[in-house]
Amino acid sequence: MKILVCISNVPDTTTKVKFVESDTKLDTAGIQWVINPWDELSLTRALELKDDASAGVKSVTVAHVGPATAEPTIRKALAIGADDAFRVNAEPADSYYVAAQLAEVIGREQYDLILCGIESSDYNGSMTGGMIAEFLGIPSVSAVSDIKIENGAPIVIRETDGGREVVSVPMPFVVIVQKGIAKEPRIASMRGIMTARTKPVRIYEPSAKEPLTRITVFEKPSPRAACKFIDPENPGQLIALLQNEAKVI
């Protein structure tokens, strides 16, 4: 079984984002780039499956669409334990464009399980996984919080609005992963960092695809009014404010 983990390169989640060029572009000065948190958990789970000999996972490959500046993030994924990687050398214009590029390569290279995080922490699109599956005409299961391999067949748990379901789908399919899939992201060991340098990263030029959307400008959320402090000895005052001023209880 070959597993592919799609990763997005995002600003560290503690970043205070700022914009430049009349609020049309992210100010990248001083930003630490990381693997999108959900993708990092997907990668961790893929590697756990590979460690379990009974699961029969032959390889874990990492996929990314982005310019060469994303190389450190891909190397980090290799250091954590992925076997190899490919990068489509293009600006990720929108989710449709990214998914189209990934689907093109996946169609050629053939993977059995394709893992995508449910969302990226930058554009919060929640789109790429489902789009890849539709481009390839294969099933997708979304909001997956657990995946096991039993007798060579994947069994997943998907979260629903108000419960969960144990689901089986024939391979190949796209697993859209949410919290719970792995407890803590795996950290690279020193040996992992050393070996990552020589692991293969295939670089592909993009195929001719067009994005369907574009962002024209970013806005910061409007600042909230200053906090009103209430005497801790008299919290009844808070309840009165919530009832009469905010009118929310």
């Binding site: 989710s95 998914a99 790429t128 489902g130 599956a133 859209i176």
Partner: peptide
């Protein structure tokens, strides 16, 4: 989130989430 992205590709319709 499970259905809309597939629909976007199916109809070649731009999507905002």
């Amino acid at each position: 989130k499970a259905v809309a992205p597939r629909l976007s590709v199916r109809l070649k319709a731009g999507m905002a989430s």
